[in-house]
Simulated scan of single mutants.
Amino acid sequence: MMSAEKALRASAHAAFILIVVGFWEYSAQQGWLDATFFGRPLGIASYLWRGFYIDGQLWLELGYTLMGAALSFVGGAVAATAVGLVFTMLPRLNRVAEPYLTFFNAMPRIALAPLFLLWFGLGIGSKIAVGISLTFFIVLSATVAGIRSVNSDHLILSRALGATPAQIFLKVTMPSAVPVIFSGLRLGLIFALLGVVGAELIAAEHGLGQTLAYLQSTFNTDGVMALLALLAVLGLCTTSFMNRIERALLAWQ
C-alpha cells in the first residue's frame, strides 16, 4: 500500500505536470508560444499515439535503441569491472596503463562516431561500439575507486581473524565497494543510451536517434519534442531501476 506521504508527493508532481502542460497548450493556442519552435502537447500526444498504437513504427525504433543501449551497457560494464579488478590486484599495471586510458578517455566519442560507422557499418554494431566506449571508462573509474575506498582497518581485522583472500573479497571488499560501483553503473547505463542515440543521430538504419534526425530535418517539432520526452522518460526509468537494484543489494546495511 502507498503511504499517505508518497500519495501526496505523487499527487503534487501530477498536479504540477498538468499545470505546466495545460499552460503550454493554452499558450500555443493563444499564440504566445510559436508551435513551430515549441510544439503543442496535443500534437506531441497525437504523434506518440500514432507511432505506438496506429502504425506501431515507434515500437521498432524503440526496440533497436534499447537493444543497442543494453548490449553497450553489458559489454562496457563487464569489461570495465574485470579490468578494474585486475588493476586493484596489480597497482603497478594500473599506474602504467593510466596515461593511455586517460588519453583514450579524453577523445570525444561522438566525434569518433563516423570512424566507428566506417569500421562497423550503419547497423547496430557501430552504435554498440560508441555506447561501450562511453560506458567502459565510467564504470572502470567507479570500480577502482570503490574497491580502493574499502576501510583498511576492516581488511586488517579480517586477515587477523584468519579470513582467506576470497572471503575478504566477497564479504568485505565487494559489499563496501557496491555503492560506489553502482554510482558508476547508473551513469554508465545513461551514457550507453546517450551514446547509442548520438550515433543514431549521425547515421543509422533504425533507432530513435535516426527518427529524431529525420523529424528535425522535416521541421516536425511535435515529433521532436515527443521523442525527447520519450528519451527523458527512458533515462528516468533506467535510473530508477538501478536505484532499486542498489537498494536490494544494500538491504543488509
Rank of each mutant, 00 (worst) to 15 (best):
M1H: 05
S11P: 00
A12S: 12
A15Q: 02
F16D: 00
F16H: 02
A28D: 04
Q29K: 12
A35P: 15
F38V: 14
G39M: 04
I44Y: 09
A45S: 11
L48H: 08
R50W: 08
G51D: 11
G51S: 13
L58V: 02
Y64C: 01
Y64V: 14
L66P: 12
A70W: 13
S72C: 08
A77W: 06
A80E: 03
V86S: 06
R95M: 04
A97Q: 07
N105V: 09
R109Q: 13
W119I: 13
G121N: 04
G121L: 04
L122E: 07
G123A: 10
A129Y: 10
A142G: 08
N151T: 01
S152W: 06
L157E: 07
P165V: 08
I168H: 02
K171V: 00
K171E: 14
V172T: 15
T173E: 15
S176Q: 13
G184C: 05
R186G: 01
G188W: 00
V196G: 07
V197I: 11
E200H: 02
E200G: 02
I202W: 04
H206Y: 12
G207A: 07
G207M: 04
L212A: 02
A213V: 03
Y214T: 11
L215H: 04
G223E: 04
V224W: 06
M225A: 12
A226P: 10
A229C: 12
A232K: 05
L234D: 07
G235F: 03
C237F: 13
N243Y: 03
R244E: 02
R244A: 13
L249N: 04
L250C: 09
L250I: 09
W252T: 00
